[in-house]
């Protein structure tokens, strides 16, 4: 039986999570897989926590990733990464943007934004890559291509051909943004030292 790959993308509403999810889903589709993608939008967009889930393989039933079966968690923000880290399977991976975004509004009596997220991510998953995505994206020519840097990193750890990724970027992005994003994808994909494998 061919294996199913489960990718979860977590972040803050407004960070481009849904678009990032579309790119991953289209890449899987371009490679000929059955794909399901799921997220909840609506109220969550207003600066709240958002998660998008993509599953691909020979035949996908549930659009929701079952508990503890996330292969790769891609976190666009550290706290949102930690919030979902327990869902990563044994031997799974976390790719996290090193960005810290404290919640816009502090709920009274709620815990402080943790200082030790990177350490805690390393405790939760066997492979953790913390990526300075904004800095790399600036190098590619636009700080807003940070998500594409992370997708580039992701592309090295899931089994999809590079052409599938590039065709997904072409499908999902405006032509004016394509060049910088293709560059960002390559920067992310070429990044060494992303994780102990």
């Amino acid at each position: 039986m061919s294996r199913i790959t489960n990718v979860a993308i977590a972040g803050v509403g407004g960070q481009g999570i849904i678009l990032a999810g579309d790119i991953v889903a289209q890449a899987a589709r371009s490679a000929g897989h059955d794909v399901k993608k799921n997220e909840v939008h609506g109220m969550a967009q207003r600066g709240g926590a958002v998660v998008s889930e993509i599953r691909y393989g020979k035949r996908i039933y549930s659009p929701l990733i079952p508990d503890g079966e996330v292969d790769v968690l891609m976190a666009l923000e550290l706290l949102e990464g930690l919030r979902h880290a327990h869902r990563v399977r044994a031997g799974g991976m976390v790719i996290a943007n090193e960005l810290r975004l404290p919640p816009a509004v502090r709920v009274p009596d709620s815990p402080e934004y943790p200082d030790d997220i990177t350490e805690r991510l390393r405790g939760a998953a066997e492979n953790v890559a913390v990526v300075p995505a904004a800095e790399l994206a600036r190098r590619a020519g636009n700080a807003r291509a940070a998500n594409t840097i992370l997708i580039g990193v992701l592309s090295r750890f899931v089994d999809l051909p590079v052409d599938a990724w590039k065709s997904a970027l072409r499908m999902c992005l405006r032509p004016s943004l394509l060049e910088v994003n293709l560059l960002a994808f390559d920067l992310g994909r070429r990044r060494r030292k992303t994780a102990k494998r």
Binding site: Q45, R46, G47, G48, L79, R87, P103, P111, P114
Partner: peptide
């Protein structure tokens, strides 16, 4: 029967949606 799943961290600040 399924593999027992891990619980999420309980000490994280929530991130509710807010007015822009």
């Amino acid at each position: 029967r399924r593999r027992k799943s891990r619980a999420g961290a309980a000490d994280l600040p929530p991130r509710p949606p807010t007015l822009c």
